[in-house]
């Protein structure tokens, strides 16, 4: 089954009280999401009144590697399998999208791992955009004091700043800057200023080649201008000052195998410190670009685009890392990709 035929799963995450449920409730009122099933980890003060709502109790099975991101969420596995089984038997409506609202302290990585690795789920579902809500009033404090909050922003495909109408302009701008520094690739939406619909948050995920092309254009732009931590914004805090984004450009086609050896080894050794990796790759022997997405130790199935998103060809990788030295990563990538010695210069 092609990735585009799988049921997309959108993870809606964000720190405690950041407005996840309010956002989800607004989105679910839209007709485009009428056939969306929802799994929630906690029942918040804002009740969700939705046809296909299930509650799950968080339970995690840590795999032998001991890595937190590579942990199967047994609760989610059971809940999603149950939903799918009922969908197929016709005892619940035939939903075409699943939204998972996490707890405020949740790490989204094990949810992504579960969807990518669980043998049954990965044949019926695919990971869609991760949407992270950040509270404009308290978000800066959350980013400063809670590494969970930094990670939720780092793994986001879309960031939604909530309560901007309650925050002062300077407060909101400082938070925008902080979010861009942690994750310059994710577009930021502010529903209090400009109402947003499901398309802006959920469309164009990695399994949608047309959307991915447009999305790649978006995330390749701002990261080139991302601020390195040493010269970054002064408000950098204990938890987010070590997290920064950078892009690496390679001006020749990469040997896919050499790149795979390098990236698997890098994620093995440093996956916990690589919060996100996105890449638009020019691969030897492949006429169109290949897009890769990774979150910590996990890499989504690569996607082939039907064309280049910009006139600029060549390989561009965007990393969001904590404490890892950019120069060493660049040198290591260059060394490994020269192993194949078949690179083609980009004209």
């Amino acid at each position: 089954m092609a990735a585009a035929d799988l049921i997309p799963v959108n993870i809606v995450t964000g720190f405690l009280g950041s407005g996840k449920t309010t956002l989800l409730r607004r989105l679910l009122a839209s007709p485009e999401l009428a056939n969306t099933a929802v799994l929630v980890n906690e029942l918040g003060e804002v009740g969700l009144d939705h046809l296909l709502l299930r509650h799950v109790d968080e339970s995690t099975v840590v795999l032998p590697s001991g890595c937190v991101c590579c942990a199967l969420r047994a609760d989610l596995t059971a809940a999603i399998r149950d939903l799918y089984s009922k969908r197929e038997r016709g005892t619940i409506p035939r939903f075409d999208r699943l939204a998972i609202e996490t707890t405020g302290l949740a790490d989204p990585a094990p949810i992504i791992f579960t969807l990518l690795a669980e043998p049954v789920l990965r044949h019926h579902f695919r990971v869609g955009h991760v949407v992270t809500t950040v509270d404009a009033v308290n978000g800066a404090r959350h980013l400063a004091q809670h590494p969970e909050s930094v990670k939720q922003v780092a793994v986001a495909d879309r960031v939604v700043l909530t309560k901007t109408d309650l925050a002062g302009p300077a407060q909101a701008e400082a938070l925008r800057t902080a979010c861009r520094r942690v994750n310059p690739a994710a577009p930021i939406f502010e529903p209090a200023v400009d109402p947003i619909g499901p398309d802006q948050l959920f469309a164009g995920d990695p399994a949608d080649p047309s959307g991915t092309r447009q999305d790649a254009r978006r995330w390749l732009g701002p990261v080139a201008a991302a601020t390195p931590p040493e010269t970054g914004v002064g408000q950098a805090s204990a938890h987010d000052r070590d997290v920064y984004a950078f892009s690496v450009t390679v001006d020749r086609a990469l040997d896919w195998t050499a790149f795979g050896i390098w990236l698997t080894m890098l994620l093995h050794a440093h996956g916990e410190d690589i919060l996100r990796v996105k890449g638009l790759l020019q691969v030897v022997g492949v006429p169109t670009p290949v897009v890769i997405h990774g979150v910590q130790h996990l890499v989504h199935p690569p996607v082939h685009l039907d064309g280049w998103p910009t006139a600029d060809r060549g390989t561009r990788l965007v990393f969001i890392v904590q404490k890892l030295p950019r120069q060493v990563i660049e040198r290591s990538l260059a060394a490994f990709t020269r192993l194949a010695a078949v690179g083609e210069r980009v004209v």
């Binding site: 092609a2 896919w256 195998t257 795979g260 050896i261 698997t264 790759l281 691969v283 030897v284 022997g285 492949v286 006429p287 290949v290 890769i292 890499v299 989504h300 199935p301 690569p302 996607v303 082939h304 194949a340």
Partner: peptide
Amino acid sequence: WTDAAGPDSRSGAPPGGRTRRQERLHR
């Protein structure tokens, strides 16, 4: 994921016109 970057991502055909066997030896 490393098996799927060839011209046809569905079939997993290796890039560069290599056969699957050649790709494994290259790897």
